[in-house]
């Protein structure tokens, strides 16, 4: 049995005329320690899939299981606990809390834990060390660059050592050089044992993954990443163009 399982997931937003089907019968299994990238056109359901995997978005039908925990059978508050223990989120817009310093932002997932504040700080500084930002711990988010903000978001996602790391277009708002740094960081975290699931538009980024899930119109199928390599080479001339426009594509 796979570590993470999606069974016949359906997601329909809205009702009647306005109903939008974002997922149509999606099933798959992922192993612990995988590095997965999800690709697909805008509106194909990638973010929906990721939010369901993050226990944030209740599917219309189907099951989602992690470690045999049926996530959407959990009660509201338990599902919050599940998110705290199992999931680290990295968003496209970095989502730092503006009135908290860098280290305080990283401490956020530890806030509700019953451990000493000094210990929380140590854990947060350790996570910041892993993303190479120890020296900016006491700055406010507005006082650091976009790439640094993204790294703070990653530190926050890993501070409580969740088994799953979910990233929705983590490089979408970054230039290609900074984007590559972030991808290297994700690869390192994956090598340290975290299961990384990443949504991306960017073929270059997708190549960091070991498995590739492609989404189209709410349906998912697996592709061989080797194809991706070939495709990338073929598109080599256009990549730089794609990278430049990536910032505008959500």
């Amino acid at each position: 049995m796979s570590y993470i399982r999606a069974e016949n997931l359906m997601k329909i937003y809205g009702q009647g005329e306005a109903a939008v089907t974002a997922l149509r019968d999606v099933s798959f299994g992922l192993e612990s320690g995988d590095f997965i990238s999800i690709m697909g056109e805008s509106g194909s359901g990638k973010s929906t899939m990721l939010s369901i995997m993050g226990a944030l978005n209740t599917p219309s039908s189907g099951k989602f299981l992690v470690e045999d925990i049926d996530v959407y059978a959990l009660k509201q508050e338990q599902r919050a606990d599940f998110r705290r223990e199992f999931v680290g989120f990295i968003f496209q817009s970095f989502n730092l809390i503006p009135y908290l310093t860098v280290v305080e932002n990283v401490m956020l997932p530890l806030t509700t834990l019953n451990i000493k504040s000094s210990k929380k700080r140590v854990l947060a500084l350790d996570a910041l060390g892993r993303v190479g930002l120890s020296n900016k711990a006491d700055r406010l988010p507005s006082q650091i660059s976009g790439g640094e903000q993204e790294r703070v978001a990653i530190a926050r996602a890993i501070v409580n050592q969740p088994p799953m790391l979910l990233a929705d277009e983590p490089t979408g708002n970054l230039d290609s050089k900074t984007g590559a740094e972030i991808m290297d960081l994700l690869r390192q975290l994956n090598e340290q044992g975290m299961t990384v699931i990443m949504v991306t538009h960017n073929i270059e980024c997708a190549r960091y993954a070991r498995r590739l899930l492609r989404m189209a119109d709410g349906m998912m199928h697996e592709e061989d990443p080797v194809n991706l390599m070939a495709q990338a080479e073929c598109l080599a001339g256009q990549v730089s163009v794609a990278l430049k426009s990536a910032g505008g594509v959500a």
């Binding site: 944030l56 509201q76 956020l108 509700t112």
Partner: peptide
């Protein structure tokens, strides 16, 4: 709203 979304995403309960 966005901030509350972050809290909830990183595992704050409703009661928190």
């Amino acid at each position: 709203t966005g901030e509350i979304g972050i809290w909830r995403a990183i595992g704050f309960r409703r009661s928190h």
